[in-house]
Amino acid sequence: MLAVYKRDLKSYFNSMIGCVYIAFIIAFVSIYFAYYNLRMGYPYFGDVMCSVAYILMLALPILTMRSFAEERKSKTDQILYTSKSSVTGIVIGKYLAMATIYLIPILWFCVFPLIISAFGTHDFKGDYSCILIVFLIGCAYIALGMFLSSLTESPIIAAVMTFGILLILQLMSGITNFISTSNLTSFIGCVIVVLIAAFIYYAIARNAFVTAIISIVGVMALIVTYIVKSSVFGNFIPTLLNKLPLTNTLDNFAIHTFDVSGVVYCISFGLLFIFLTVQSIQKRRYS
């Protein structure tokens, strides 16, 4: 794990991606800081940080795209998987290397509230909790990007997929407005979700019998529920979709609320995708 971590960290600086990424993020956020906090005299850096967090959507895919796709393409993964290190160790090593690169500009931003405090009104708690949540959201995004990178051999495809999914998450509230909130549409949505789950199970386990049972039992349960009490489905799908984006938490933090559930959600989101990365690699090697 440590060997992979050290190598990856070094490689981000050898290949300039690390330097360019850090410079880009620092420059971007610093411009906002200089304009809102220094020039306009707005005393809360946290709000500014939260409102520019969308830049992560553009920058992080560049950082994560190469993590596994490049190794697979150049066949260097052979030295990793034939060594004594476990796959989990390798994934965590790579993840921590990316998180470290991501942490460097975040640490730099920790200086900004101190600069504001030199001029009068300041809110350290608010500012630093906002920086923390932006860091956590970024870590969750990195896990997602790493997972998508482990699915493909092409870094470019990995970057585009990561960007696409992050963009959809960002625009989710707009998308859900289009979805009808009637009981019937939510019911159909739930059926589709069950069938997708069954299909994913089939793709992994290749067991047609269990897949059939999952889909039949799931769909039957939904039909029974719909006949008995259709109001259960009202608004279900749009509400569910609206809960998905991590940026909701950001809005809460921006209005100076420490959203614990949001923090937990970010961490679980990250852990889930680290876990899925390990699974996707194991699956490719053992099937």
């Binding site: 190598r7 070094k10 050898n14 290949s15 066949k75 260097t76 052979q78």
Partner: peptide
């Protein structure tokens, strides 16, 4: 392996 697993940037 058939293709030596080398990291070109090292």
């Amino acid at each position: 392996p058939e293709i030596p697993p080398l990291y070109m940037d090292m």
